[in-house]
């Protein structure tokens, strides 16, 4: 399928405008993930928008239990993005925060809850947006070698996104998507968990990497900045030369 053709044929004009939600970890550390997201979506003809006043969705504060501290930030986030038709983010985890956690922050504030729910329906993870909304399954990307795919927890279980990223990867020219043992099992990141319980985290990420190496893939691909920092950091320390990349980074490499 030719990317431009399929895309323009199926996409309404409204959909061509995409607002970027770039999580803080991508903004400050994994900048290349954000850059790849931009290059990929632009190549597919989307008119990109980036609200420069955006910061962080507040997930670390919410999961640690400080809901009171997260509410104001959530209101701010909603106000920034709620006029947008479509918001896309290269992070399943952060999308899950908006879609699932925000409405729960406002159990006692129905008006804000309504706004949170409505926004949640228009915030998409990158692969979800491409496959389910824009109906693009082949982005004309290229990679020579074998790919393994790690199913990030929030992407898979909180958002139910599974076939979308795999479809996109299967259609990467020159690449072969190979199976990996326990691909659906957590990588041991868990935000604060990785710092507070480092020895448990080490055992989990160690097994993840063992399975990646056993898959004989040349590259591990995933779609969550948290898992990326965790696995990349572990590989750099223990298996220098072995690579993990974000889905956006892989898809941005065109033929």
């Amino acid at each position: 399928m030719k990317p431009g053709n399929g895309l323009l044929a199926k996409r309404s004009d409204l959909m061509s405008k995409v607002s970027l939600f770039i999580p803080c970890a991508v903004d400050a550390v994994l900048v290349s993930v954000g850059e790849s997201t931009v290059r990929l979506l632009a190549r597919l003809g989307f008119d990109l928008q980036y609200h420069e006043e955006q910061t962080c969705c507040g997930q670390p504060v919410i999961t640690a239990g400080h809901l009171d501290l997260a509410r104001d930030a959530a209101c701010r986030f909603i106000s920034i993005f709620e006029e947008d038709e479509v918001v896309v983010s290269p992070s399943g985890s952060c999308v899950s925060t908006i879609r699932h956690d925000y409405p729960r922050l406002f159990e006692d504030e129905p008006e804000w809850q309504r706004r949170a729910v409505e926004l949640g329906q228009r915030v998409y993870e990158l692969s979800e947006f491409l496959v389910d909304v824009a109906h693009i399954e082949d982005v004309n990307a290229h990679f020579s070698g074998k790919l393994a795919y790690h199913k990030s927890c929030h992407l898979l279980r909180a958002l139910g996104i599974d076939h979308q990223p795999q479809t996109l990867l299967k259609n990467v020219h020159g690449a072969e998507l190979v199976p990996m043992q326990d691909d659906h099992v957590c990588c041991g990141f868990g935000g604060q968990f990785s710092i507070k319980y480092p020895y448990i985290s080490e055992a989990i990420v160690g097994d993840k990497v063992k399975n990646f190496l056993a898959s004989e893939a040349d590259l591990l691909v995933l779609s969550d900045p948290g898992c990326l920092l965790n696995i990349r950091g572990y590989l750099h320390r223990n298996h220098p030369g072995r690579q993990v990349k974000h889905l956006a980074e892989v898809l941005a490499e065109s033929v």
């Binding site: 994994l30 954000g34 931009v38 990109l48 080490e202 572990y234 320390r237």
Partner: peptide
């Protein structure tokens, strides 16, 4: 304990967007 952390790029995504990505994307 078991992993490294990438150094933070000199420019954040936000700065890169302002400086060149926005125009390039358009």
């Amino acid at each position: 304990r078991c992993r490294d952390f990438p150094e933070m790029p000199e420019k954040t995504f936000r700065q890169r967007w302002q400086d060149e990505l926005q125009e390039e994307a358009r």
